[in-house]
């Protein structure tokens, strides 16, 4: 067990020297989370918008369901995706278990409800304001959803950010379906968990530092973007 001071020192060295293992893990993490958030947005935004605009029986129940899915426990999502993708599972033939793709799938399941629920709220508020004007212009249903999503872009950035924040910090689901295989499916959170348990605090700390920085930078960038949009009265 290294002592604390040495661990910090070593972590700094890893960061400054651009350690290859470290870089590999960070890059894979970013790829997986970006992929998952992109997918979740592609699914969750239209879904949330439809929920906001459409009127059908059972809609309110669906809204409640999506809202509560925001709090899905990651390990349960991991387990379910594991069962689907395992050899005996319905999607076993795809041979996806312990691949980055499986991790993207699990993260997408986690993030989609977040994006959908936040989108629903934003779009519903905006629709209340736009509805009669769009009716007056005889805008059709599909075009209406597109309009609302586009005009809500400033607020939707926040939804995407919330999704990214959730997935990048998540460990339970990706460790189950990814397996934390070195050079293949090892991402920042799973590596931190492993290296800490192995007593390799330097790498864990360095990764923790990167993770923290990414979280801050992403939040800052999005916050700045949002501020600019608000300033231009697009929000």
């Amino acid at each position: 067990m290294q002592d604390f001071g040495a661990a910090f020192w070593l972590a700094g060295e890893l960061l400054v020297s651009g350690d290859e293992t470290l870089a590999e893990i960070v890059v894979l993490s970013l790829k997986i989370n970006a992929g998952a958030v992109a997918l979740a947005s592609a699914i969750g935004m239209p879904l949330g918008a439809i929920l906001a605009v459409a009127r059908f029986p059972g809609r309110q129940a669906l809204v409640v369901l999506v809202n509560s899915l925001m709090g899905l426990p990651p390990v349960v999502v991991g387990l379910v995706v594991y069962l689907m993708l395992s050899n005996a599972g319905p999607l076993g033939v795809l041979q996806l278990l312990y691949t980055p793709t499986a991790m993207i799938v699990a993260q997408t399941v986690l993030v989609t409800p977040i994006v959908a629920a936040l989108t629903r709220q934003v779009i519903e508020d905006m629709d209340a304001e736009y509805s009669e004007q769009l009716d007056s212009l005889a805008v059709g249903r599909l075009a209406r959803i597109g309009t609302l999503l586009y005009d809500a872009r400033a607020s939707l950035v926040t939804a995407v950010l919330a999704g990214f924040g959730r997935s990048v910090a998540e460990v339970g689901a990706v460790i189950i379906v990814g397996g934390n295989i070195n050079h293949v499916t090892r991402v920042m959170t799973t590596a931190i968990a492993l290296e800490t348990s192995k007593g390799n605090l330097a790498l864990a700390l360095a990764l923790g530092f990167v993770l923290l920085t990414i979280a801050i930078v992403v939040n800052g960038a999005v916050g700045g973007l949002r501020l600019a949009m608000v300033r231009d009265a697009h929000a």
Partner: peptide, 20 residues
């Protein structure tokens, strides 16, 4: 309905302008 509205326009008491 929609067909009729396509030949009409309305200016609302509180204008609803798009965020554009």
């Amino acid at each position: 309905g929609r067909e009729v509205r396509l030949s009409q326009a309305m200016v609302f008491q509180q204008p609803v302008l798009l965020r554009r």
